[in-house]
Amino acid sequence: MIVGELKPVEEIVAKVKGYSRILVVGCGGCVTVCQTGGAREAETMAHLLGMALRDLHVSLDWTCVARQCEFELLEELKPRLASFDAILSLACGVGVQAVAEFFPSSPVIPGLNTTFMGMPVRHGRFEERCQACGDCILDLTAGICPVARCSKSLLNGPCGGSQNGKCEISAEVECAWHLIYERLERLGRLDNLERLVLPKNWAKSRDGGPRRMVREGLVPDGEE
């Protein structure tokens, strides 16, 4: 899932200043799951901003759509928009952009910082797991991604800063390659690490420019 965290509230207040009728829109997808942008958070944010901007006579309301990253699901906002002069979106960057694209004349303000793709390791604690590099090698690395989880995205094993299973950048960060090593050892596949891995094709990653995925077999020929 996509993990997003609430922007510093001071920053949100600065961004919405100047608008007088603001609709806070939550998203029922990933950010609901990570408890930062769902229906409840939308209500919470509306109350907070309402109190913070009370002297400026700003009115706030809130709602939540099933997923902000689907145009069809944004349709339900249309009738309400006339009464607001700005949308504060609590979706990830994808949702914010979908809202902006779908409502060309409404200003959209992001309320979250989209941080990573990851998972809850326990209630309320999320960790990064994938970087969408576009070329998965998890079979070679025992199911642990060095691109996302090694601080240097190394491909040929741990650097010289790996000690006691920790990364050189902080004792709080586990060395992904140490985890990979231990798991390969358990699987009896340490030979994976002896192979020289040649430079990665980063063109499949974001470095190749904005990406597009076309699922074959879905769009009839001649249609765009």
Partner: peptide, 24 residues
């Protein structure tokens, strides 16, 4: 060399590259 991570240095806000690793 691979190089120390930028978080040690005086520009911890830098974007790192690591396109290649030292072996590559």
């Amino acid at each position: 060399l691979t190089g120390d991570h930028q978080s040690f240095g005086n520009h911890p806000e830098a974007k790192n590259v690591f396109d290649l690793d030292s072996i590559q």
